[in-house]
């Protein structure tokens, strides 16, 4: 387990080190010469009015919520997709092939139910106008 992921961890460390190095080196090589005008946020030359972090459209929240919900559906679909052939077979498969006449609709049925529920939710969200951005 650990061995498989060791390269990933190494790479992670390496990449983080890189990021730190880049940031650090650039921090050392440059000399900041801030002036008040340089420091104000760039808004096409117009003096900024108020704080940037005001309330923004609730649509973004909505997308976030929808994402959370639908993304989890994907989480369920991945294992199903991987095991679909096994689920479609009423008996254990032989050499990756289902013995003739042993196909089962179990996997398909399960997923159809799942998708049906998902579609209901999707249609609801759609008809409610949550997907249109106006």
């Amino acid at each position: 387990m650990l061995r498989t992921f060791l390269p990933v961890l190494l790479l992670l460390g390496f990449v983080v080190l890189n990021a730190v190095l880049i940031l650090g080196i650039s921090h050392m090589t440059i000399k900041a010469q801030p002036t008040p005008v340089k420091s104000i946020p760039y808004e096409s030359g117009i003096t900024p009015l108020g704080d940037a972090r005001e309330r923004f459209s609730v649509k973004f929240y909505l997308v976030a919520m929808l994402f959370i919900v639908f993304d989890i559906e994907t989480v369920f679909m991945i294992p199903w997709g991987v095991y679909y052939r096994q689920l479609s077979c009423a008996v254990p498969m032989v050499n990756g092939v289902c013995p003739a006449g042993q196909l089962s609709f179990f996997g398909l049925g399960e997923m159809l139910v799942f998708v049906a529920i998902l579609v209901v939710g999707f249609v609801y969200v759609w008809k409610k106008g949550a997907l249109t951005w106006d």
Partner: peptide, 15 residues
Amino acid sequence: SNNKYALLGGLRSSA
């Protein structure tokens, strides 16, 4: 960034 463009950009990209 505390910049309106940046904030909007960030939000848009996330969405």
